[in-house]
Design a protein around this nucleic acid. Structure first.
Lengths: 242, 242
DNA sequence: GTTTTTCATTTGTCAGACAATTGAAAAACT
DNA sequence: AGTTTTTCAATTGTCTGACAAATGAAAAAC
């Protein structure tokens, strides 16, 4: 049997794991300074290159940042919501693109999760989110908008809706589901008639949210899901026919 | 103004970004081989150490794997669902632990998302998932179980429920929400009486799922959320009183 | 035709050097 | 004493060159 550990003979991976564990377990706290590269060389009895490769691994995972100079070194990063969202979106997007997840599956997951926010969003929505959504709807109504920009605005609209639930953890989780769909949506073209339909549903959602009518929001999200699937089907049919 | 780009003078970060872009954009596909380190040295006009640090960054993000030997090199990794779930859980857990997210907020997000799965889970549940959930319930009924093992089984139970929805994207997104709560739950102690209540709710959920009664599942998840919050309150009160 | 040996390629690790950065300490100057 | 300037030591960033280890392909031996 092959060695299960991926770091059988990869010192930098082992060292990175050891340091990572100290960060995750809380031995090292945010903004704590790691030992200098020279110290780590001694501690792990390896060369500086190896230590540096380990540190670069942690830096790539956004766990540490480095600073040069007399008071420099490697410091534990505090993971911000923004950074986590960015990471989550990147992973989600890659996952969808690399695994040939069917449009239906991704769509179902995304709208299922989004509908879950309806209750909280209606209960807590503020004036500002409503304005934000309206602004995106206005942007979407511009016929000069490219398909890609239309999709981007669509994402912004839905994220504003999710944010209305006023739960950062929820927003973080949902961001991955909503944003990861964008590359898939970008493959579809949106003629004026289709856009009009989508914009109408968006307006309906915004108004239902304003009226705090969660059932209506849910229903409209269902319609939007159905319609999105229709569009994808149409696109596929057109592509097959050509 | 300070340079916005974090890689002002960090060649390995720049090179990693360049290669990452090629992977994400699809120029390099799964299992494609990257140029050898020597080739990359030439291409980017840097030393081997710098190239290696860049490659280690990509390896840390699970984007590539490396292999020694004649036919070795760095190869683009296919991101599996398992790897993505692991990453997602790790990020989510760190986010909750580093940002002092209130128990209430995390709990609300988790149960809101979990309830979203009720409909699909009831529609699609198979015999196996039901058995899996029952098995976890049995484990939870063992009084000898440690609090930590009880929590772990709780997580397994809920993940089985989510998996019943039979949508891998949904499972992936939910895993982060459910697993990230575990460290928070681990801080609570579960006396026998509390466990009995939880187990009862779990049994109810399993049965409702078997009966494909989504409303009942949703109601029980609501109860579970309320009860979990109560437990956390009790824990806090006891801690404050001591 | 099969087995063994050799070998070139590639990553993993080490050692030592110098540049760039940066804040603290020391020195010089009011 | 207080302020400014200079020096300096610590630290990361990069480069060079070397050798070890792994690995499959090619060559050689059988």
């Amino acid at each position: 049997m092959k060695n299960a550990s991926p770091s059988a003979s990869d010192l930098s991976a082992k060292i990175a794991d050891a340091l990572r564990q100290e960060i995750i377990s809380g031995v090292l706290l945010s903004d704590d300074r790691l030992p200098s590269e020279a110290d780590l060389c001694e501690k792990f009895d390896v060369s500086r290159s190896t230590v540096r490769e380990a540190l670069k691994r942690l830096a790539a995972q956004n766990l540490i940042r480095t600073q040069r100079g007399h008071t420099g070194g490697a410091f534990v990063n505090k993971l911000t919501f923004d950074a986590a969202v960015t990471q989550h979106i990147s992973t989600s997007t890659l996952l969808l693109s690399m695994n040939a997840v069917s449009f239906e599956t991704a769509c179902e997951a995304r709208f299922t999760l989004e509908r879950a926010c309806a209750g909280l969003a209606c209960a807590r929505r503020e004036r500002e989110t409503f304005d934000l959504m309206k602004a995106e709807v206005d942007r979407q109504s511009d016929p000069a908008l490219s398909d890609e920009a239309f999709c981007a605005s669509d994402v912004a609209f839905h994220r504003a809706f999710v944010d209305a639930a006023d739960n950062p953890v929820l927003s973080y989780q949902l961001a991955g589901a909503v944003e990861a769909m964008q590359p898939l949506m970008n493959m579809i073209t949106f003629p004026a008639r289709d856009r009009a339909r989508i914009v109408a549903l968006h307006i309906g959602m915004a108004n239902a949210l304003k009226a705090r009518d969660a059932d209506e929001v849910t229903a409209l999200l269902h319609e939007l899901e159905t319609y999105t699937l229709e569009l994808a089907d149409t696109y596929r049919a057109r592509r097959a026919g050509t």
